[in-house]
Simulated assay, not measured.
Amino acid sequence: MANRIVLNTISYHGHGAIENIVPELTKRGCKKAFVATDADLLKFGVTKKVTDLLDAAGFAYSVYSDIKPNPTIENVQNGVSSFKEAGADCIVAIGGGSAMDTAKAIGIIIENPEFADVRSLEGVADTKKHAVFTIAVPTTAGTAAEVTINYVITDVEKKRKFVCVDTNDIPEIAVVDPDMMASMPKGLTAATGMDALTHAIEGYITKGHCAISDMFHLEAIRLISANLRDAVQNTPEGREGMALGQYIAGMGFSNVGLGIVHAMAHGLSALYDTPHGVACAILLPVGLEYNKSVSGERYRAIGKAMCVEGIDTMSDEEAADATIAAVKKLSADVGIPANLVGILKEEDVQFLSESAFADACCPGNPRDTSIEEIAVLYKSQM
């Protein structure tokens, strides 16, 4: 079977990378940008780092910030209307996964109006045209939405998240500038960083993994494990390492899929508005324990990337356990809760289990599962 790899046409990395935004827009003949961001980034001046560059160049733009932390169908619909009203011809998405996911959906619908019903984009949508030309500028080191072919939208009415997978949604240009991430608070840095680690680890053990994705994921695990604690302390080196690590993780999992941890985490965010990274961090050791019987031989490589001492001389069982312990320690060190106590309600377990089983990430899990087994996993964290 052939393996497909989809990546940005161009990506910029490192301090000052945002200086490339205006030149990339102008050389393509773009006239007005639709800046998709969120209200907090506007409030705290993060978006301004980019709009100041647009202002200095006299480049016209319109700002859209009606985007929730878990973006909704309504956020996308309003964004489509705002894009049309603005007369824009390109998108600059500034933010975490929420802003970039919303921008992806807007860009797809503008170019493929037959998918105006946002729910019709769930799964693998048969769109014909690439989304509006988009430059994605992440402000968190976690989701890697700037390099993936996925986006996630919340259906408030049905109390669920749905995953959309479309090669036409990937931003043409990613601008990964650690300076855009410097103002992230500790809690958000920790949560998004653990989301990135979950991407890398789930991507490494997923059914669809291949030699190229393995290369990406192991390097991402190494970078994230080495830099997340420092990034939470806001060191320049930690920020830069995490910016690169989360992007590399996205290069991998976008092309081979994820697993049960993300499938279960999506429901928690949709139902309780739990930060996605927090949900992933809590559930990652649970998923690793569950999958150990079928993919445990790959855990040694994960542990080596996390610099687990003495792992080369351990048995497979010992290496797997040591790797899971290292994941738990990293999560605890950056302040993530140990379980779902105070989050998960027993009366919701059945609904959440059904949602997780139906989630687009679930089929990629290395161990085949069931609604009943997922329910047991949820309950183990109460």
Rank of each mutant, 00 (worst) to 15 (best):
M1E: 13
I5H: 11
I5F: 09
G14W: 09
H15S: 08
H15G: 12
R28C: 06
G29K: 05
C30S: 04
A36P: 07
A39F: 04
G45E: 09
D55I: 03
A60H: 07
A60N: 08
Y61S: 11
P69G: 13
P71A: 12
Q77D: 09
S98V: 07
D101I: 08
T102P: 15
A103M: 02
A105Q: 01
A116G: 05
A125K: 14
D126K: 13
H130V: 13
H130I: 11
F133T: 00
T139D: 04
A141T: 05
A145R: 04
I153V: 04
V156A: 10
E157F: 12
K158S: 08
K159Q: 12
V165W: 02
D179S: 12
T192V: 06
G193Q: 06
C210P: 15
H217C: 14
A231Y: 15
V232R: 12
Q233E: 15
T235I: 13
G250E: 00
G252N: 06
N255G: 10
S269A: 04
L271C: 12
A281F: 01
S293K: 06
V294D: 04
V294W: 08
R300G: 04
I302A: 07
G303Q: 02
E347W: 00
V349K: 05
G364S: 10
G364V: 08
D368G: 07
E373C: 10
L377Y: 13
